[in-house]
């Protein structure tokens, strides 16, 4: 256990120290310019921007995220299945094939239902 978790924690520490350290050092090295209000405006290709409240609320993104979660769970159930499929394919291969086929069939039907119902459309 230890020789798999410890390297990851050490690497995480190294990355964070490297990132934060370099950010701090480069902020020292860089020039210090006067912060004029125009300079600090968010970059809007020169046109004075509207306030952020006026953005239209795009509903499409969270529907993609929801269908991603649901199909991700399907992929998660496939992983343990791949482990035991090839080993005992002789004695219970058919049984495994049918059980996973049913599961995948239901979810492929869900995908095509979403496709037909326009869940995947991008206006």
């Amino acid at each position: 256990m230890l020789d798999q978790l410890l390297p990851i924690l050490i690497l995480l520490l190294i990355v964070i120290v490297f990132g934060a350290g370099m950010l701090y050092l480069t902020s020292l090295a860089g020039p210090k310019a006067k912060q004029t209000p125009e300079r600090l405006m968010p970059y809007e290709c020169g046109i004075p921007g509207q306030d952020p409240q006026t953005t239209k609320f795009p509903v499409k993104f969270y529907l993609t995220a929801i269908s991603f979660i649901l199909f991700d769970i399907e992929v998660i159930f496939l992983y343990p299945w791949t482990l035991i499929y090839i080993e005992n394919i002789k004695q219970m291969g058919g049984y495994l094939l049918i059980s996973m086929g049913l599961f995948m069939g239901i979810l492929v039907f869900g995908l095509f239902y979403e496709w037909a119902a326009g869940g995947l459309e991008w206006d």
Binding site: L23, L25, T26, S27, A29, G30, K32, A33, P42
Partner: peptide
């Protein structure tokens, strides 16, 4: 060039 750039943080 990347190291000597100014540390710029926009207003909001």
């Amino acid at each position: 060039k990347f190291i000597t750039k100014e540390q710029f943080v926009p207003a909001n």
